[in-house]
């Protein structure tokens, strides 16, 4: 693979609070953005809760890091795949998720949604295409 660009996939499987995996996983994505690789994120299982709208951690003394997801677009991290089955199993739909966008520099900087809902089969195909998968 030499000096070519690699495909990195960050798979988020856990709820945002309760363990530190989601927060530290996000830190990897933000640092990794500086390396100009092809990057996508995946949210499956309880990981879909990471993108939930209206998170309020005030009474649990945890740092609410969900606003950080809004910055991902500016870091050219604009492919966030959310698994349909995981949403459905938790009684959720796309309407429950943060509205995350990025500016498409190839399309006159039009604002486009970063979140794409995919089913389990499509996700398996995507995973098949990756060079490096880091999961948290």
């Amino acid at each position: 693979m030499g000096n070519g660009v690699k495909k990195f996939m960050y798979v988020n499987r856990r709820a945002p609070y309760g363990t530190i995996y989601a927060l530290e996983g996000l830190e990897v994505v933000l640092i990794g953005a500086a390396f100009d690789q092809e990057v996508c994120m995946v949210f499956v299982d309880d990981g879909v809760f990471q993108l939930k709208k209206g998170q309020d951690t005030a009474e649990s003394n945890m740092k609410n890091f969900s606003p950080t997801y809004r910055a991902l677009g500016d870091y050219d991290v604009n492919k966030l795949y959310v698994e349909k089955e995981s949403l459905e199993q938790r009684g959720m739909s796309e309407d429950d998720l943060l509205e995350l966008t990025y500016e498409d520099e190839d399309d006159d900087y039009k604002e486009k949604p970063s979140i794409r809902i995919v089913n389990r089969e499509e996700l398996a195909d995507l995973m098949e295409q990756q060079d490096v998968i880091l999961n948290y």
Binding site: M1, E27, V28, I31, G32, A34, F35, D131
Partner: peptide, 18 residues
Amino acid sequence: SGLGQLIEMGIKADRVMA
């Protein structure tokens, strides 16, 4: 060292084992 070392490892390695 920093997280950049993890990304660099992913770029340079034939395979990352987690």
